[in-house]
């Protein structure tokens, strides 16, 4: 614990800022019902009310409280992105490790499938699949998880390949250790640092991806509060010089910036350790 604190103290200002922001978002997401003045989908006033008493940030196109929606948006958007990233990671890293450890035709098959999936731009593929299966949160989560898992697969496979050829893994094989031991004791602990960094980056991509789909009206569906669709629904206000619709967009940007700052520091640290 002490070592962790010391490490944090040595972090550059950008990383400290990032950690602070991430903790803040987590707090807001967890305590959303306590922090909000109104209900998530409750219509409490007229349409597009201005900032002021009762509605700190005014109301949206249906007369719901902006601040409330913004806070619930943290919970919904981040929660869904987080879940999707975890799914993508489980799928990508398990298959990636297996491909590296077993090699041969398993590796060939998985790698070719991933090659093909990656030959189609993710957003376009996402749009196509959503046309076929229809737009819903479950569909979106699954589609994005599968698409992003291809990138996790590539990284996990490459990292594991680098470790599998190490002499200590060869020593373990020659000792007669089984696949499970080699994966869990020899490969995984050494693959962890790059995978943790990748998790941060993937989360950013997934988060932006979901926001983009929601913005296009194809992601998280109303009445669930979500930042991407909030921008879309209230965008007209901008032409009247009101910056309210920029706030959910800024909320997205700030979180991704924060995560990127932390990942950047982490990568710098990890590469420094190698030298």
């Amino acid at each position: 614990m002490n070592a962790t604190l010391k490490l944090l103290a040595s972090a550059p200002w950008s990383a400290k800022f990032g950690i602070f922001i991430i903790l803040g978002y987590a707090f807001v997401a967890i305590f959303a019902p306590v922090l909000t003045p109104y209900g998530e989908t409750e219509i409490v006033g007229a349409e597009f009310e201005l900032w002021g008493d009762g509605f700190i940030l005014g109301t949206d196109s249906l007369g719901r409280d902006m601040l409330t929606r913004l806070i619930y948006g943290a919970r919904n958007t981040i929660g869904i992105a987080f879940l999707t990233t975890i799914l993508a990671f489980l799928l990508g890293s398990v298959t990636g490790f297996l491909a590296a450890a077993i090699s041969g035709w398993v590796d060939q098959l998985l790698s070719r499938v991933v090659d093909v999936l990656m030959a189609i731009p993710a957003l376009i593929f996402g749009l196509l699949v959503l046309t076929i299966v229809g737009t819903s949160i479950t569909n979106m989560v699954l589609v994005i998880a599968v698409l992003e898992s291809t990138r996790v697969f590539r990284l996990a496979r490459a990292v594991a390949m680098g470790i599998v050829v190490m002499d200590y893994v060869e020593a373990a094989r020659l000792r007669g250790e089984g696949l499970w031991w080699i994966m869990s004791r020899e490969v995984l602990p050494n693959a962890l640092p790059p995978l943790v960094a990748e998790f941060g980056l993937r989360f950013c991509f997934v988060f932006l991806f979901i926001s983009a789909l929601s913005f296009l009206g194809l992601g998280i569906q109303p009445p669930t509060a979500d930042w991407g669709s909030m921008v879309r629904d209230n965008a007209t206000l901008i032409t009247f010089g009101d910056i309210t619709p920029l706030m959910p967009a800024a909320a997205i940007a700030l979180l991704t910036v924060a995560v990127n700052f932390v990942v950047d520091w982490f990568l710098h640290k990890a590469s420094g350790l190698k030298e």
Binding site: M166, D167, Y168, A171, R185, P189, N190
Partner: peptide, 15 residues
């Protein structure tokens, strides 16, 4: 048993 050329890569750095 076997002993390797590069002791750096012959020992798991996490153990």
């Amino acid at each position: 048993q076997m002993i390797y050329q590069m002791p750096d890569t012959a020992l798991n750095p996490r153990q």
